[in-house]
Design a protein around this nucleic acid. Sequence first.
DNA 1: CCATCATTCTATCGTTTCATAGAATAATGG
DNA 2: CCATTATTCTATGAAACGATAGAATGATGG
Lengths: 234, 234
Amino acid sequence: MRVKWHDGYRTFKRVNMSDQQQLLDTLAQVGRALGNGHRLALLERLAQGEAPVETLATTAGLTVGNASQHLQQLRRAGLVTASRAGKQMIYRLTDERIVSLMGLLREIAETNLAEMERLVGQLFADDDAHGALEAVTRDELMAGLERGEVALLDVRPEDEYSAGHLPEAINIPLPVLEQMLERLPRDKEIVAYCRGPYCALSHEAVQRLRQLGYRVRRFEEGYPEWKAAGLPVA
Amino acid sequence: MRVKWHDGYRTFKRVNMSDQQQLLDTLAQVGRALGNGHRLALLERLAQGEAPVETLATTAGLTVGNASQHLQQLRRAGLVTASRAGKQMIYRLTDERIVSLMGLLREIAETNLAEMERLVGQLFADDDAHGALEAVTRDELMAGLERGEVALLDVRPEDEYSAGHLPEAINIPLPVLEQMLERLPRDKEIVAYCRGPYCALSHEAVQRLRQLGYRVRRFEEGYPEWKAAGLPVA
DNA sequence: CCATCATTCTATCGTTTCATAGAATAATGG
DNA sequence: CCATTATTCTATGAAACGATAGAATGATGG
């Protein structure tokens, strides 16, 4: 029973292999897809919404060719699909649960890896320097919105915002923040969010706005987590 | 800022790398740990309960030396910890959530990989041959136990059973199944379970018991999933 | 202290992964 | 049909991974 597979090596190894081990090997293929920082960056971008290769390459800081290769690998692992739209190939996540998978991976890593704690600490160091800027939790945010006490600020690029965002959120991409301050109300607390817990955009936005005298905090999650939790999006 | 790391290559690459990418790279380390079938087999065994290296090596079908290396890798990824007990090193999962992580990985793979479907189909082919032997769901099982209509059979090796098992379960390791039939009631339906959805032990047990005329089905999950769901264990 | 047992460490070899550059393919608009 | 644009494919070299065998370490029990 020689099963045709992606390459000769595996074909050889899989001969006479228990169903069990074959299943685990196939699962491992999915694990391997998560085993590279650049691919995780691509997945994080895809969690914001579908996108063509060039966009993905740019946000992940890769050459187009290299990004394409990583995307093929994600495709073989069943994590993304692609469809053609004119000259462009549009990639998207196959499954809403992939966001949960990455979230769980993150939580486990944060709990059990010292290195992780160090890096997260570093990411939050600037916040602390400005005086205990705790991130806003989901419940807090929802309560604040309910009472009309907070304004939501989405600092992601415009294309990610328009692919989906939190209800009522105002979009000011970080690079043009200072040029569009008139969009922000001065009488409410501002809560900034971006791509997820590790996305630096909202950290940066909070720092810059505080320097300008705004009352502003960071939402501890991002758009993908909000959406994956089944909460309403626009 | 040259951070000391596991090897020279990474140290070099990480210079001037964004916090962002460093975090994703560290996460990727956890992903990579899940990217090998043998390591997944080790994790599956560890989900049954802590064990020394030799036991782990045997159940995963590895040499002791090789198993040790894989375990080091899992340790570096923060997925397992080890402690010495006399001459032996006892390994265990660091976190209950790792079972959920593997479950989610499995669900996503099953939905999105054709190869996965094929292999699962193969695993279930024998059941179907004997006439639509649907696996028992968790709810069904709980209802059946409640009404006292089913007897639970744990076909895992004795050491895994004694590390924890479903309440009221009778343990008959598969290799000695025929020698211990007197432990099984003949007036109830028997539900067999083992290590998890892909574990072949309960499949095999069901086939052999049906040949002997027992009314018997398979539980669709295993001990780790039951425990991870917060249900009572003995 | 020595012999034993369990495990880890080290060196090695073959295979795989990753990034790069450049060729090939596919759709579009003249 | 040709030039352009977007993407994928192919070949290459450097680094990492995985399995093996044998040496080294660490705890135990005489």
